[in-house]
Design a protein around this nucleic acid. Structure first.
Lengths: 224, 224
DNA sequence: GTCTATACCCTGATAGAC
DNA sequence: GTCTATCAGGGTATAGAC
């Protein structure tokens, strides 16, 4: 288990990210992390004084991945801002399916679990959600005049984020994409209404294709 | 701590519901539950063979409370179906504020945390989410022809549920109602567009008042 | 149905050699 | 920076008297 091409610290963070994601923070013991990462207790506590310090590192890592592999990749896929929005949504959907519904949202899972303690963690989660929403708001800004001037893009971005987070929770417990797809279709309808300025029209301006599979393993969430 | 007017079983369930809600399932020890409920180990394991059995009882309890104290109460508040919808949303908002943002969604918190194991729990959560969505769909059906015939009410109900769940997570970590309010306003705009059949009109048909405070302690979530 | 006492394990974390 | 060995404490759960 020892001679990998990654550093021990990196393996610990990635392994912890996945285990926290699958099982939650409290349910994941440091022993399991160490074992799966091929590290020993001495290494672990050399890098991370406490389990919570590891969690903070995991959150930083998740933030980078979301930034690069979700939003970054969505911008590569298409130039159309609305398609980019649903490319982001599509990444979550595909990840859900690819992992047989055992993984929900990396941020949402932890944010839902962590309580009143963990104030540093809470702050970081808040910032990560805010970054996500800002990125989404940027995509909405790109839609330009197709959105009514009265539209609160900040709030709309939060709606998209919230809907995705809530849908992931439900699709995970249902082990089905149905809730997620229902929510996605409603977001499409809503954005269709906003951009078409005609509530009875079908949301024709939107292609609802999922984003294509990534070519590189590094662009795949499974590489987390 | 002994002589309450409730049964021991009941106190255990209610106490566990609150602690699971605040801290999560894994982070809440049975000792803490016993202590706060004023019960001893003998009593606890007399009623619940394992901690997971208690969790199942907690979920049943939460389901009843949501049914009665959220949807039931919302129907008492007003006759207008759209106002009822936002009365339901308003209950979550008020609860968030009343508890200083330490409590999110009783279902969402547990659903996000519980992983691949806990198959009974997963099934029950799935059913509870489905019940919630069906109740919401019933309210949407009540809106009648103000909603376009083409509207998928099942999907729309899921969107409302997802948006609320996601917004609660974000408001909890941000310790602010801002994300929740942003999401609520977007839901109002969307429903306004759907019911007005005119995307440029303000959603005038909707009064956005929060539901009034409940008179009886038993109608208050804090009595959970 | 409730009490006290306790078994037994796994947890996060530490010590000190290498 | 990594190893082995180990600690103290809390975790769930049990036993058996009352």
């Amino acid at each position: 288990m020892a001679g990998r091409r990654t550093t021990t610290r990196e393996r610990l963070v990635r392994t912890a990210a996945e285990l926290f994601w699958r099982q939650g923070y409290a349910a994941t013991g440091v022993n399991a992390i160490m074992q799966q990462a091929g590290a020993t207790s001495g290494s672990f506590y050399h890098f991370f004084p406490t389990k919570e310090d590891l969690l903070l590192a995991v959150l930083d890592h998740v933030g980078e991945v979301v930034e690069d592999e979700v939003f970054g990749a969505a911008e590569v896929v298409t130039d159309d801002p609305i398609e980019r929005i649903f490319a982001v949504v599509g990444f979550y959907r595909r990840h859900l399916e690819d992992n047989e519904f055992v993984l929900g949202s990396p941020l949402g899972t932890l944010a839902a679990e962590l309580g009143e303690d963990h104030s540093q963690v809470r702050l970081k989660l808040e910032q990560l959600f805010a970054s996500w929403a800002q990125r989404m708001e940027g995509l909405l800004d790109g839609v330009g005049k197709r959105l009514p001037a009265s539209t609160d893009r900040t709030a709309l971005a939060r709606l998209v984020l919230s809907a995705v987070e809530g849908a992931l929770i439900q699709s995970r417990v249902a082990r089905s994409v149905a809730p997620f797809d229902a929510v996605t279709s409603q977001l499409q309808t809503y954005l269709g209404l906003l951009t078409s300025h005609d509530p009875t029209a079908a949301p024709a301006a939107m292609r609802v294709t999922s984003p294509p599979r990534q070519r590189s393993r590094e662009l795949d969430w499974r590489a987390w």
